[in-house]
Design a protein around this nucleic acid. Structure first.
Length: 749
DNA sequence: GGGCCCGCAGGG
DNA sequence: CCCTGCGGGCCC
């Protein structure tokens, strides 16, 4: 028989009666009220000295616990005061006949919670930005932890809060205790009786900062030091991004999905992303890492698709999923969840998503990919987005990597909206603990949860094969069979990706840092506002250094000086103003120098994507256009009052832009200060990529789903910067881009 | 906060 | 080449 205290309404949790005050005993340590007659053995009279309740006697933090110097400094008087004083104050309240029982309870709670409230303040001090500091080391560290340890107890079960949730009044509860409490219809805090907002009651969120604090407390207890804490990455460490539209420039985001991928895994890589595939940080993608949005998440390889919730291939398997609240049938229990397949929705009218289900889902496409991962027992990476509002386990902001799960079963059932949906049971199987638990270890194999809806399910699919990813004898999850070889690199392993990267540095150098005029590696690079780079000598040679021209009238009378029109050799943008005082891009120069100093390895193994595209695509070393002709051509163009395509432009194809986005990051990619990141050698190609769209949908002027308008083949309008501020139009003539009208330069802002 | 719009990646 | 997609910004 266990001993239980009185609840917040003063009712004994053993006999369920409200005992008279004379039969209530207050614990010296935790001040909780106990019904003396229901204790084991029952107490007939109030003990003469201080009395500790059974919980505190069992607890390692029993009455012998004394406040350490740091903590006590931060604590309010009542908590610091002798316990007898607290007891006497509470007794005084109990004896006050002017108070109702509810008021008494409230006051009692106030006294009892004072110290705890202040510990919340201490926690804040110890963990600015929600992340624990490590400077609490030494004596202070341990004392702080001890203190935290107690203050982080759940109000109900008195244990360190498991999956802690925090009410707006600042009290912490285990998620389960809290849900039980509100499930009983309680609408006030169990501690201080402050109202719990309905939203919080129905959708509590795990307090991530507390999870870390509790884990630290635990780890420190066993290891004597603070554990490693994963912090949110800010954008400072992000290399530059790819801008194409003016709107994208504003936000710096819209086209970031073409931004660098920082990890060297192929897109069809299964399982966690290890340190060896993280050349920038050499730590891999860690459980609990979070990013601002899906675009940034993509850059770290946790979940590659920018919109879709499922990454995978229908004949190969699914590598990752996102829980973003897009499908209302989803059900999240943290260590396991029920996921809904994709499809079944009407996406006509150029929509990306649609909440309305309008037909049945089938096990095809991505849904089939998930089923293959289920069949094979592959590890599937899971990210949770803040957009999932119904789950307690979703992050408050951004997108978080939560580790790998296995799909144990899948089936179909009628969804909430009445159409058949594919369902998947995901169960966590990661070596690192989940972001919401304070466990120090990762998952252990656990029994499958009971799924009610299986009773009404159809097309139930269970794994027959032993899983590819399983818990090994060594006590860790890992591959039991060889991980499926990547089909994207053609080489199979992440090592080859690494190797490829190493081997191609020289090529990359040429590709990333080629001059748009001489096509050699840039010397004294000048970066134009339009994003194209040229050697300073090349531009000087092409335009001369004069920015204005003196003129004389017919009579020999001097006229106003005229500005010399200078246009970007690649995209024809007006760069006259920029060339008045051109600044050499020193950072780029340094990166080029560094790359040039890197020893060359065997070139024969370089993959085709790394190689330059050969003659027909504009070889870097091909100086086919003498720079001296350039100015002549420009002048002619101006003289005729219209723009002509530049001859090489037609030669180039869509290489640099779209390929580089798929390729692993290089040392060159870390050139943070350089805004214009795209290939210069393939700059014409790149221009195509922008105007044609890298996926080759260039001929589509405006696409309304199911109603694609095709324009005539010879003259194709490929781009209309028409986001409310129409800026420029480009015509494509026989595959050569030519600017026909530039009403403003906002393209480059 | 909801509707609308659309760039983009990647599957098929 | 077309289709799909649990985004994200902007406008209202």
């Amino acid at each position: 028989m266990t001993d239980l205290p009185c609840d917040t309404e003063g009712r004994c949790m053993v006999c369920k009666d409200v005992p008279p005050d004379c039969d209530v005993l207050l614990c010296n340590s935790c001040s909780s009220p106990w019904h003396m007659l229901c204790l084991h053995p029952p107490l007939e009279s109030v003990p003469s000295g201080d009395w500790d309740c059974p919980d505190c006697c069992l607890s390692p933090l029993s009455s012998s616990f004394s406040l350490p110097p740091l903590a006590s400094a931060a604590v309010d008087k009542p908590f610091q005061a002798p316990a007898s004083e607290v007891v006497s104050r509470i007794r005084a309240i109990q004896a006050d006949e002017s108070l109702t029982e509810v008021e008494k309870a409230k006051r009692r709670q106030e006294i009892m919670s004072k110290g705890l409230n202040d510990t919340a303040g201490l926690l804040t001090r110890a963990t600015p930005n929600g992340c624990p500091t490590k400077n609490g080391g030494g004596g202070n560290w341990n004392s702080t932890l001890k203190f935290l340890d107690q203050s982080l107890d759940c109000i109900f079960c008195m244990q360190l809060a498991d999956r802690p949730v925090t009410t707006p009044c600042g009290h912490n509860f285990c998620l389960k205790c809290f849900q039980k409490w509100v499930g009983q219809g309680k609408k006030t805090c169990g501690k201080c009786r402050a109202a719990i907002p309905a939203k919080m009651a129905s959708h509590p969120r795990i307090n991530a900062a507390l999870v870390i604090a509790i884990r630290m407390a635990k780890t420190a207890k066993s290891n004597g030091g603070p554990p490693k804490v994963y912090q949110h990455r800010d954008n400072d460490s992000r290399p530059d991004k790819c801008f194409t539209t003016s709107r994208a420039v504003k936000t710096g985001k819209a086209n970031a999905c073409s931004g660098k991928i920082f990890v060297t895994i192929p897109p069809d890589h299964f399982g966690p992303i290890p340190a060896e595939n993280d050349p920038l940080r050499n730590q891999g993608v860690l459980v609990g890492e979070s990013w601002e949005d899906r675009l940034e998440c993509r850059q770290w390889g946790a979940h590659m698709p920018h919109v879709a919730g499922i990454a995978g291939q229908s004949d190969y398997g699914s590598q990752s999923v996102a829980l973003s609240g897009g499908y209302e049938d989803d059900e999240d229990h943290g260590e396991w969840f029920l996921y809904t397949g994709s499809g079944g929705r009407d996406l006509s009218g150029n929509k990306r998503t649609n909440k309305e289900q309008s037909f049945d889902q089938k096990f095809d496409k991505m849904n089939e990919a998930l089923r293959i991962s289920c069949k094979q027992g592959y590890p599937v990476r899971v990210v949770r987005s803040h957009k999932e509002k119904r789950s307690c386990y979703a992050p408050e902001t951004g997108v978080r990597y939560d580790g790998v799960y296995r799909i144990e079963k899948c089936w179909r059932k009628k969804g909430i909206q009445g159409y058949q949906v594919c369902r998947y049971l995901f169960v966590r199987c990661d070596n690192e603990p989940a972001p919401w638990t304070s466990d120090e270890q990762g998952d252990r194999p656990r029994p499958l949860p009971e799924i009610e809806e299986l009773k009404i399910a159809t097309d139930i699919f269970d794994r027959k094969l032993p899983p590819s990813w399983d818990f090994k004898e060594c006590g860790e999850w890992g591959w039991m069979r060889e991980a499926p070889p990547s089909r994207k690199t053609g080489k199979g392993s992440s090592e080859s990706v690494q190797k490829r990267k190493q081997l191609s540095i020289q090529q990359r150098l040429l590709k990333e840092f080629g001059c748009g005029v001489c096509r050699k590696v840039l010397q004294q690079p000048l970066s134009m506002p339009c994003g194209h780079n040229f050697c300073k000598p090349c531009l000087d040679g092409a335009f001369g250094q004069q920015s204005t021209r003196e003129r004389t009238g017919v009579s020999g009378r001097p006229l106003r000086t005229q500005k010399v029109m200078k246009r970007c050799p690649t995209c024809n943008a007006d760069i006259s103003d920029y060339l008045i005082t051109p600044q050499i891009n020193r950072q780029m120069e340094e990166v080029i120098q560094t790359l040039q100093d890197t020893p060359v390895v065997d070139h024969s193994i370089i993959s085709d994507t790394d190689c330059m595209q050969g003659d027909q695509e504009g070889d870097v070393k091909d100086c086919s256009k003498p720079t001296s002709n350039l100015q002549k051509e420009q002048n002619e163009t101006q003289a005729q009052g219209k723009n002509k395509p530049i001859p090489e432009a037609g030669k180039a194809t869509l290489t640099g832009y779209s390929n580089s986005s798929k390729e692993p990051a290089t040392a060159a990619d870390v050139d943070k200060s350089h805004v214009h990141k795209r290939s210069c050698v393939d700059s014409e190609a790149e221009d195509h990529a922008v105007s044609l769209k890298p996926n080759g949908r260039g001929r589509v002027a405006k696409k309304a789903r199911g109603n694609v308008t095709k324009l005539p083949p010879r003259i194709t309008r490929t781009r209309l910067c028409n986001n409310g501020d129409a800026t420029s139009k480009k015509l494509q003539l026989n595959g050569c881009p030519a600017m026909v009208e530039v009403s403003s330069d906002s393209d480059f802002e």
